[in-house]
Amino acid sequence: MKRTSRMSVLIVICIMISLFFLMTFVVFKQEHQQEKIDQKVDYTYRDFAQKNKNVKDGVIVLAYHRILKNNKTVDFAKKVSKNPQLQQYNVAQNEFIRQMKWLKKNNVSVWSTDELIKHSRENNIKGKHVVLTFDDIDTTLPRNAAQTMFNFSFPFTIFVITGQAGRNLDGEQMATWSEIARLAEHKEVTVGLHTNDLHYQVNNHPILSSGKLSKHTILEDYKKSQQKMKKEVSVNTHVFAYPYGSENKTLTEYMYLHGMNGIFLLEPGVVTNDMPDILKRIPRFIVTDSNFNQLGKWFNSR
């Protein structure tokens, strides 16, 4: 090999090594920043059942993100990464199936979001119920979770980032519009919105509640998400979930005045009768691999 050729190869190798270390540093920094935020939130909800043990008539809304297959690749990624996208916001497929079987075996009443909205408006929640929801909608929902819920005839709601369908978002492959449309064909499925292009953070703060966006930008994004959902899936949706659970009061008031029946956050809580404006701020219980037992404790408390 000529000297010039060897030099060219060495330069390319050096560039590749430099890029690798640069990417590793960026990923580490992002994960470290997110880890610090995540440490502020106790996803075990260890006191949840105890705090709500006296609530005899109520609804817990469960929020799932990713349902990951049980394989060596996923296990390895979880071990080497501190990213809460792998550590907190996912449930292993076998654990998810176990959870759905538990609901079925214990005759837990699984409501749709429509049923939740109806009974909340009528102040007619009697007994204990659960609502199943999924955020973002990456490919793990149609591939790893949906059939289990269809098998049990459990209703569930999907909150779609309309501007990201079919794309890669933060390392996760979003479901395509055709996959979302096939889900929407099932009577068990309610389709909701999760913004069009505002599912991101600036300086570790959700952009929607950061105060950095104009009212016009926020409302235009919402209108675009409605239009895109109607175009792609022929659905006029009436439920919305805030990215990262952080609300924007201007958007909430606008949506509620323009046909949005239920607006969901991400914080633990039980929906009960006579809670003022509860349909504007519906709490949700983020499910992980290990905290589902708190739900069981609440259902078993009498």
Rank of each mutant, 00 (worst) to 15 (best):
T217P: 04
P155L: 09
L266A: 09
M229R: 00
F48N: 03
M100C: 09
T73F: 13
V9K: 13
R302I: 12
F150M: 12
G58A: 07
R182I: 12
S234M: 09
T217F: 07
H258Q: 12
A241G: 10
I125D: 03
K56D: 14
K2C: 12
S225M: 07
V130W: 00
I13G: 07
E220P: 04
W102A: 06
A92I: 01
A77G: 01
F264T: 00
V108T: 07
H32G: 05
V189Y: 00
N54Y: 08
N94T: 07
V160S: 03
L22Y: 14
N273P: 09
T157P: 00
H216S: 15
A175E: 02
Q87N: 07
G245Y: 03
T140I: 06
N123K: 11
N196W: 06
S153I: 10
W177C: 04
K29A: 03
L279N: 14
V160Q: 01
D47C: 08
M16G: 11
A241S: 15
N52A: 02
K249G: 00
I13Y: 08
I158M: 04
R143S: 12
L141D: 01
M7T: 12
Y89P: 01
V91M: 00
M174W: 00
M7Y: 14
H238M: 11
M16Y: 12
